[in-house]
Write a protein that binds this DNA or RNA. Sequence first.
DNA 1: CGAATCTTTGAATCCCGTCAATACGCGTGG
DNA 2: CCACGCGTATTGACGGGATTCAAAGATTCG
Lengths: 234, 234
Amino acid sequence: MGGMHQHLGHPEGENALEQLVARIPLFSQLSDAELGEVARRVTPRSFPRNAQLYGAGEHNANLMIIHSGLVKVYRITDAGHEQVIRILGPGDFLGESTFIDRSAVDHFAVTLEKSDICALHHDDLHSYVLTFPGVAFKMLETLSRRLAETEHQLSSVAGDDADHRVATYLLEASAAAGTERIRLGIAKKDVASLLGLTPETFSRKLAAFEEAGWITLHRGRDIELLDTRALSLL
Amino acid sequence: MGGMHQHLGHPEGENALEQLVARIPLFSQLSDAELGEVARRVTPRSFPRNAQLYGAGEHNANLMIIHSGLVKVYRITDAGHEQVIRILGPGDFLGESTFIDRSAVDHFAVTLEKSDICALHHDDLHSYVLTFPGVAFKMLETLSRRLAETEHQLSSVAGDDADHRVATYLLEASAAAGTERIRLGIAKKDVASLLGLTPETFSRKLAAFEEAGWITLHRGRDIELLDTRALSLL
DNA sequence: CGAATCTTTGAATCCCGTCAATACGCGTGG
DNA sequence: CCACGCGTATTGACGGGATTCAAAGATTCG
């Protein structure tokens, strides 16, 4: 894990760091004094694109909180190809599995773009969880939501056909963005993997949707939904 | 939800109940006094086979802890067929999603056999979580493990072929049991769904494995692994 | 600007799901 | 305890949708 920039000591950095910590959902219920205490233990780092945060087999000892950037969490299947589990963005954290389990992780975490990430050692997190019940509760909320999402992914991959999965993804992305013009923040091959498809199939489905007049594919990763009704009927 | 047997008031029931609560992993770190406090709020019920604990759309307000029996958690996909998410047994709890989220559940929970289950109202659990950090931590552990399992299921269903999934399931069941003679505790159709397969495909794969001399199918749901090496190579 | 990665398109294959019919076995009720 | 009945399991044939392999085209990033 290379290239860390540690800002320690000087009061300005300290203050900025505290404001950074205050924006972390995980610590949103803490008082100012408590935030300051957390801020003193947190280590901000900046990672370039395609930096591996940790990999399978390692014993990662840090909870990492994303301030800016995008992180891909994936696993290498027995068959040998990459399966994307989830994409994490600002406010999300990762590295909690080893915090709770202590065994080696079985997946990989890589930045998809330049990212600013705060690291908090598991020992410190442990004391916070025991001291501030709100922190434990926030973690429970997050894990519970992730579990629900992963279960949803599972039943989708197991039960629905490719058309349905692609259509659902587009509709959800549109709903999340609030527009009918969505921009895939990540590579199509990663979206495909997230949906349990090959890049080829994903590409074909999008082409078929455009053919049917339901969407328009713009340059790059821009997609415009023309007929959400038709998509939701798949 | 019919047929509840409430044992309240009389001291013997109280004591037995306390011993019951003491065996719940979720409360394993509590002191005797604290266990007694929890026991006073817990409601034991006995459910017959095929009883629905809760269903999609409901606002279940209880954490349910399985003392004995087996519970199937599943979801109905958009396509309309049942997708088994997980099977829960003694010591496991369910109903935590509404505890954390308050929104309606999107899945179903049904007993697969006669089950004794303790119900604990979410309000009580809330106070325990805030009062006893160990309880929150135990919940974190459990959710984290479930998340890891579900992620594993996901990448398996998305990436591996049917042979590999069936073989892996058999091997894991064997490893968990400690024997090479395993007994599927649940219906094959449910195992198939858990693996993201149709019952027909599951049946065919087992037949093919027997044909190849890797396993022997005995009466009922008994399977004997003859060549674990061959199975692990799939 | 250039190269590596991602994306698209085509054609062939194959694995798995679907439908259907039969056999089995478990759990229920008498 | 036994017999009945329904849900479960098996087996076959078939069709389809997704993957695979391959190669050309586009985009992004250094």
